[in-house]
């Protein structure tokens, strides 16, 4: 088993799978716990991805540092996505997490999972997954809301919506999420250098 360590093309062994599972649990909780304070408040619901992006960085970076093989980020993204869908989040979040994980896995793989900047980029992609719902929302805000009002939409309501929802919000959400995820990745990089590499728990 130890011979394969550090080889980016090697297949995942059982130890890697278990490590991935445990860190997926932590990652999922970080995404959830960060998102809840924003999600439950109607005014800040749209900024939920900000909170989600804040906490997970160190966790994903340590996972990459511990496994350093193709597939770990992908599995973490797919599993978080599955659980998000299973607890009833909008399907776009789950799909976004899974896609972010798959693309992020390839990007981190370019740097053989050792380039911290590319690893951070992988995290940014995973956390962009939670903006999936809002991309859907802004693609068609009216049908989203008519669902709530049982088709009783008034003229004034539609006017308020179009005045309020607001082309600028989507770029703000996306760019803000990227920035916060970068910050989280930066903290993660520092933590890895300062603590985990010294402790010798990275592969």
């Amino acid at each position: 088993m130890s011979k394969q360590a550090g080889n980016a093309t090697a297949k995942l062994n059982v130890k890697d799978l278990i490590t991935t599972g445990i860190f997926s649990a932590l990652l999922f909780l970080a995404l959830l716990i960060g998102g809840i304070p924003f999600g439950i408040n109607p005014v800040t619901t749209f900024y939920m991805p900000f909170g989600s992006a804040l906490l997970g960085g160190p966790i994903l970076l340590l996972l990459i540092a511990k496994v350093r093989k193709r597939g770990a980020v992908m599995i973490a993204g797919i599993l978080s996505g599955i659980i998000f869908i299973a607890i009833g989040m909008h399907w776009a979040i789950g799909l976004g997490c899974a896609l972010g994980g798959i693309i992020g896995d390839f990007i981190a793989g370019i740097g053989k999972f050792k380039n911290m900047k590319l690893n951070t980029l992988a995290y940014v992609l995973v956390s962009l997954g939670s903006t999936g719902t809002f991309i859907c929302y802004f693609a068609d805000p009216q049908s989203w809301n008519t669902y709530m009002l049982n088709g009783k939409t008034s003229e004034g309501y539609i006017q308020t919506m179009s005045a309020n929802a607001q082309g600028w919000m989507l770029p703000v959400i996306l760019i803000g999420t990227v920035l916060i995820a970068c910050f989280s990745g930066f903290v993660g990089t520092k933590l890895l250098k300062k603590q985990f590499e010294k402790a010798g728990i990275t592969a």
């Binding site: 109607p42 009833g88 709530m148 004034g156 308020t160 309020n164």
Partner: peptide, 30 residues
């Protein structure tokens, strides 16, 4: 809330409750 509010507040709460109502049954099932 949806009957009593109007305008921007209704829009805000509509989006929020849409989210809650979509999440709740699946959350309970899982």
């Amino acid at each position: 809330i949806l009957q009593s509010l109007t305008g921007i507040w209704q829009a805000m709460f509509a989006a929020f409750f849409a989210l809650v109502h979509k999440v709740y049954p699946c959350g309970m099932m899982s």
